[in-house]
Design a protein around this nucleic acid. Structure first.
Lengths: 185, 185
DNA sequence: GTCTATAGATCGATAGAC
DNA sequence: GTCTATCGATCTATAGAC
């Protein structure tokens, strides 16, 4: 006992999975304890702010992942075609081809939205902006690029909703496929 | 006291609003009691199955509204252009131009999905089918119609997610506008 | 048919031993 | 740093008065 091995970052993946599956309200501390294999004492040691701080940490980690694997490549890749193809590939990986839900989207639809409004807004706003800029580098005019970026994000989020509602991940894959064609046009 | 006036159907709108704002887990009985202005005794008189039965009743009512105002017109209107324009108008009204969330979509993303899987699936599956059929009557071939129907539902759901995440209902309106053009093409 | 009161379970959070 | 024990609050659900 008194294992000193754990770090805060170690429990984030399990934590994220619990929030993804049960939402903010549905993720009880006892459930979180089971899935992270940590007692409440340990959880409060890592997250003195309780469940809210756990969710903030998870959202931050997700934001970090997207910044590194989606937003940054989208901004820095000089060849816009490759930037966009890379984005779609990363999205497909992240959402496990439609088998995994977007936690930020789920939070946005639920009552957790107000609590985490800043992070939710920032995630989608950033994505929207960097994608629109990549589309402009591809030759689209300002308005077309903005609209197309917005439609792309909506198709991704909507595809995840539909895939889960119909219990059919293929819906999401078809959505990505269609986006690939549309964004290249 | 002993007011005999209330009927089950009278509380459904308030009930729906509570679930929409707080999700299934977040909608506590005390909150439901406040918003419906009914005590727990009355609520359990109308819904012996408790919160789950309340949610089922709300989902049924939503399904009834869409059947009458979206699915049925989409099936029966002989002029497919009018059928689709009518659908988009009904959707805009129902979702208050993006200010209102889709409860069924929100349930699909959260942990309520498994509990209400049948109703969630049926809602989207029916919509998808009747829209695809209308598109075929418009002259699209089978595969195109199916894909376009799917993309339409995803755009609507994704538009609602984005509108709420960015706190900007205009996103949803732009989405409907774009759909109008795309479906007519 | 609606209310208040409350049971019984579970919630988030804390304290203290080790 | 992790555990167990436990607090008070809140939850869903029930019982009984009116």
């Amino acid at each position: 006992m008194a294992k000193t091995v754990s770090e805060r970052a170690d429990v984030l993946p399990a934590l994220a999975e619990v929030f993804r599956e049960h939402g903010f309200e549905g993720a009880s501390l006892s459930l979180i304890g089971q899935r992270t294999k940590l007692g409440k004492g340990s959880l409060y040691h890592f997250f003195p702010g309780g469940k809210e701080e756990m969710a903030v940490a998870v959202l931050d980690e997700i934001d970090g992942w997207f910044t590194a694997n989606v937003f940054k490549p989208l901004r820095e890749e000089v060849e816009p075609r490759r930037a966009i193809a890379g984005m779609l590939q990363a999205v497909d990986d992240y959402f496990r081809s439609g088998r995994r839900v977007c936690l930020i989207g789920a939070f946005a639809l639920g009552d957790a939205r107000d609590r985490f409004a800043r992070q939710i807004r920032s995630y989608f706003a950033t994505w929207n902006t960097v994608l629109a800029e990549a589309l402009m580098r591809l030759g689209k005019d300002d308005e077309t690029a903005r609209n197309l970026a917005e439609e792309t994000l909506a198709a991704i989020q909507g595809g995840l909703v539909l895939a889960r509602a119909l219990n059919d991940p293929c819906v999401f894959q078809r959505m990505l496929c269609q986006l690939k064609a549309r964004l290249a046009a």
